[in-house]
Simulated scan of single mutants.
Amino acid sequence: MSTRTLAVVSAGLSVPSSTRLLADRLAQAGVEALAALDLAAAVEVVELRGHARDLADNLVTGFPNTALRTAVDTVTGADGLIAVTPIFSASYSGLFKTFFDVLDKEALTGKPVLMGATAGTARHSLALEHGMRPLFAYLRAVVTPTAVFAASEDWAGGDRTGAALSDRVRRAAGELAALVAQRPRAAVADPFDDPPPFGTLLAGL
């Protein structure tokens, strides 16, 4: 069975976090949807909360430290991305935006992305469409038609509300799995495949 990698970016600030809870549900659903297509999945989670200072340093220096570089490589090297943020003041969090600000502008080109968001009230649900979708369109990612928003009542609103969230999660995960399955896997470049001639190296000394 061929394996695909799903990177999960969670921008939750608290521990535990409803943002991480939604991210985990989307990741599990993504694994199950890929399995239905005879594809195994490896999930790698990036918790932005632990990189808040790293991101600030990157903004002012222009360079990521080792920990942030690992997180960036996890996201850029994955076959698919699940990105989940809390909504503050009707838009994604600053921490979430900062992470995508430090990525190379070509890093997500063509990458399948499933968007998710959480907030205290459903009034914020349109932030997925007026905030997050334009962000990933600018980065030229391929975003699933279904985005998943979870308000407080989705976690504690009874069977009907919980079932509605589960349906959205499954539908979005199925769309992500289909996009991941269709996308050719990127070849990993070997820096030693095409070494410069020895004479060229000597000429540079």
Rank of each mutant, 00 (worst) to 15 (best):
T61A: 12
R168P: 03
A117R: 00
F99Q: 06
V143H: 03
E153D: 14
V84G: 01
V143K: 06
W155K: 03
D79V: 01
L165P: 06
G94C: 06
P64C: 08
T85W: 05
L135A: 12
N65E: 14
K97N: 06
Y138G: 08
L108R: 14
W155P: 08
R133H: 05
L95S: 03
R171V: 03
E106I: 01
R183W: 07
P145E: 05
G62T: 10
A181F: 06
D101R: 12
V102P: 12
D167V: 06
A137C: 06
P197M: 06
A117S: 05
V180S: 11
G80N: 06
T85C: 05
L179R: 13
V60W: 10
A147F: 00
R171D: 01
L176N: 05
L108Q: 13
W155D: 04
T61P: 08
V75L: 08
S152Q: 15
H130T: 08
G94R: 04
F99P: 09
V169F: 03
Y138P: 06
S91I: 01
N58Y: 13
R171I: 03
G174S: 09
N65G: 15
T70I: 02
Q182C: 03
F63H: 14
P112I: 02
M115G: 01
M132N: 01
F96A: 07
S93W: 00
E153G: 02
M132P: 03
G77P: 04
L176F: 04
F192R: 12
T85K: 11
T161V: 14
N58H: 14
G174D: 12
L95H: 05
H124R: 01
G62D: 11
D159C: 00
V113L: 11
F198A: 15
E153Q: 14
S91Q: 11
D167R: 12
T146Q: 14
G94W: 00
A119E: 03
A127W: 00
P195A: 08
A173M: 07
A173R: 05
L128Q: 09
L128D: 11
P195T: 02
S125P: 02
A187I: 04
A177W: 04
A90F: 06
A107K: 11
R171M: 06
D154I: 02
A181M: 08
G158M: 07
I87C: 06
T98V: 10
F99S: 05
G120L: 10
L114S: 03
A107G: 13
T66P: 01
A163Q: 15
A71V: 01
L103M: 14
A119Y: 00
Q182A: 15
I82L: 04
F100D: 09
T74R: 08
D159H: 07
L59A: 13
I87L: 04
P112M: 08
T200K: 11
D73T: 11
G120T: 03
T70R: 12
G157Y: 13
L59K: 11
P134E: 09
V60A: 13
V102M: 14
M115Y: 00
A78L: 09
L103S: 12
G62M: 12
A141S: 14
S93P: 02
E153T: 15
S89T: 07
L176Y: 02
S89V: 09
G157L: 05
E175N: 05
P196T: 07
D194E: 15
F63N: 11
G80A: 07
M132W: 02
T200S: 14
P191F: 06
D193W: 00
L95I: 03
A78N: 10
L95P: 07
N58V: 09
A119L: 01
D57Q: 15
V72C: 02
A164I: 02
